[in-house]
């Protein structure tokens, strides 16, 4: 069993993206019983500074293609390189982060290799399948999160999947391997660069919700930016970060980068406090694996109470300031 994982860099920190490390570890967890191998692959201008962490989290080898022209995504060039790397390695599986880059490249590669690609998997495991031997079982929410489907690619290889950041948990420490790094060589053709990037405006994604143990999330029920200011006080008192439902983002109470859910971040903090959030299926898709969920909502029938461990039925205006007061007292 050989598993390849696509590695991405966080350009702000010049570090590995969380999802890349999560995938390396997932790949390792999948293949280790089979004496398999995890091959990480990376395309860009320079390697992330902490790239060796990959070898602490299960990667056996890193293949990279570095070139100044590859600093930013160029779909055509990236896909040619990935396809070449995959053909050289002939892996059983290839995993990508369900990031904007991963979701741009992976479908192109699957289309060229004429194989299956399963998006946004939340669970991956290997098992026997009929007479096909051991294959990858891929679970993913579908139908707006109302069903959980298990998808398989029985006939074609490699079996490909994307996984969202934060979905596959990373242990405190991994399983260290010797670092093996190989440069991939291939002539890059000019007509693979089908567009020019005229300008780069940095700074869309600054908040990494996945990195916090405590998250205080607000929804439409906060009714205003001022409502969110109170949530920031609560988050500060708890040493946590503020997140939001899509409705709160749509109303402009806070920024999109804080959105949790199907179209936002997936988080699994130790504590998730949902304030003025009804608990739609799309929101739950991003937070229901939190260790403990506290719901504060004035509607006792709000679905969020269905997944909460603790709750208060009430107006946040009456509840949150009192919580802040007691938190500061103790």
């Amino acid at each position: 069993m050989k598993c390849m994982v696509f590695i991405e860099r966080n350009p702000i920190e010049n570090s590995l993206r969380d999802v890349s490390l999560e995938l390396a570890w997932k790949g390792y967890s999948l293949v280790k019983e089979y004496g398999g191998e995890v091959v990480a692959f990376y395309i860009g201008k320079e390697l992330p500074s902490d790239v060796d962490k990959l070898f602490e989290y299960g990667a056996d080898k890193l293949i990279h293609h570095l070139d100044d022209r590859l600093e930013y995504l160029h779909s055509e060039a990236y896909k040619e390189i990935v396809v070449d790397m995959v053909r050289q390695e002939s892996p059983d599986m290839v995993l990508f982060g369900a990031t904007h880059t991963g979701r741009d490249i992976a479908p192109l590669v699957a289309s060229i290799l004429k194989t299956g690609l399963t998006a946004d998997c939340t669970q991956l495991y290997l098992d026997e399948y009929k007479d096909k031997g051991t294959i990858l079982y891929q679970k993913r929410p579908a139908f707006g999160g109302n069903i959980l489907a298990t998808i398989v690619t029985p006939e074609d290889r490699p079996m490909m999947a994307t996984v969202r950041e934060g979905v596959m948990p990373l242990p405190e420490s991994g399983d260290k391997k010797a670092a093996v790094t190989v440069a991939h060589t291939m002539e890059l053709k000019n007509d693979w660069f089908k567009y020019t990037i005229k300008e780069v405006v940095p700074g869309i994604k600054k908040i990494n919700l996945g990195a916090h143990d405590v998250i205080v999330a607000g929804g439409a029920g906060m009714e205003s930016k001022e409502g969110f200011a109170i949530l920031h006080q609560l988050a500060d008192a708890l040493g946590g970060e503020v997140a939001a439902s899509r409705a709160a983002v749509d109303f402009g109470f806070t920024k999109k980068e804080r959105q949790v859910g199907q179209t936002g971040s997936v988080v699994r903090p130790k504590l998730y406090i949902a304030v003025g959030i009804s608990g739609s299926i799309q929101h739950r898709a991003g937070m229901e694996d939190s260790k403990k969920i506290i719901a504060i909502n004035k509607d006792a029938d709000a679905p969020i109470f269905g997944i909460a461990n603790m709750g208060i039925v009430g107006d946040y205006r009456d509840v949150i300031p009192v919580m802040i007061k007691y938190l500061k007292e103790d």
Binding site: K114, T115, G116, L117, T118, Y129, Y137, P141, G145, N146, I147, L148, A149, T150, I151, V152, T153, P154, E155, D156, I281, P303, G306, I307
Partner: peptide, 14 residues
Amino acid sequence: PTKVHAIKNIQLTG
């Protein structure tokens, strides 16, 4: 190439 192997409906787990 992909096949749906199984479908499970998600219930609100109390």
